[in-house]
C-alpha cells in the first residue's frame, strides 16, 4: 500500500476520533464515530483483513451507530449543551492520553518487531496451498489459494469452527442473554397493584 494512502486513512480515523471527543453535540459525535469506523475498516482492508473490515462496517458503522443515533433521538438531550466543561477532568484526560501515546511510541521505537513491513513478510499463498496444512487441506480454500486469492472469510470460518467451536456457542448464548436482558431492561415497571 502506498504510504500516502495509509497516512490519509490514519488521518481520517484519528481526525474523526478527535471530533467524537471534542464535539458538543452528541449527533455530531455519533456521525464522526461512524466516519472514524469507516476509516478504521479501510485500515483493516489495507492489512489484508477483508472480512474483519466488512464486519467492522456492517456491525459498527451500521448497526451500532444506528442504535446510538436512535437513542440520541429518543432521549432528546439538546438541553445538555452549553454547560461549562470540567477543566480538571479535561486536563487529566489529555495528560493520561499524552502519557499513553508517549509510552507506546517509546516501546514501538525500541523494538525490532515493529520494523516489519508488508514487503518483509509477504503473503505466500502458493506455499500455503502446496504445504496443504490445516485449512489449506480443504479443496475450496486450496483452490482459492492456488488462484492467487486470499479466502480470508473461509480461513476465519475454518479457524472459528475448527478450534473455537465451544467459544462460538458461548458467544451465541451471550447474544441471547443480551437480547433478553435488553427486553427486561426496557420494560416499563408495572404499578405495585399489577402483576409483577
Amino acid at each position: 500500500m502506498p504510504p500516502l494512502l495509509f497516512y490519509l486513512l490514519a488521518a481520517i480515523t484519528l481526525g474523526f476520533g478527535l471530533m467524537v471527543v471534542t464535539a458538543r453535540n452528541p449527533v455530531t459525535s455519533a456521525l464522526s464515530l461512524a466516519s472514524c469506523f469507516v476509516g478504521l475498516a479501510a485500515l483493516f482492508v489495507s492489512l489484508d483483513a477483508y472480512f474483519i473490515g466488512t464486519i467492522q462496517i456492517l456491525v459498527y458503522a451500521g448497526a451500532v451507530m444506528v442504535l446510538f443515533l436512535f437513542i440520541i433521538m429518543l432521549l432528546d438531550i439538546k438541553a445538555e449543551e452549553g454547560k461549562q466543561p470540567n477543566l480538571a477532568a479535561i486536563v487529566s484526560g489529555i495528560a493520561v492520553a499524552v502519557l499513553l501515546v508517549t509510552q507506546i511510541m517509546t516501546v514501538v521505537g525500541h523494538t525490532k518487531l515493529a520494523e516489519k513491513t508488508p514487503l518483509n513478510v509477504p503473503l505466500a499463498l502458493m506455499d500455503a496451498a502446496n504445504q496443504a496444512k490445516g485449512a489449506a487441506k480443504l479443496p475450496t480454500i486450496a483452490n482459492d489459494l492456488k488462484a492467487g486469492e486470499l479466502p480470508d472469510a473461509k480461513l476465519i470460518g475454518f479457524t472459528l469452527f475448527d478450534q473455537y467451536g465451544f467459544h462460538i456457542q458461548v458467544v451465541g448464548l451471550l447474544l441471547l442473554v443480551g437480547t433478553v436482558g435488553v427486553v427486561v431492561l426496557s420494560k416499563r415497571e408495572k404499578t405495585p397493584g399489577g402483576a409483577a
Binding site: V20, V21, K83, I90, L100, V108, E115, T117
Partner: peptide, 25 residues
C-alpha cells in the same frame, strides 16, 4: 509503512478514547 505505524495509530485512537472517557460528562 511498518507494523509500528499501525500500532501507533492504534495507540493514538485508544488514547483519544481514554481521554474522552475521562474528560466528557
Amino acid at each position: 509503512i511498518t507494523l509500528g505505524h499501525y500500532l501507533i495509530v492504534s495507540g493514538m485512537l485508544f488514547a483519544l478514547g481514554l481521554a474522552g472517557v475521562i474528560a466528557r460528562r
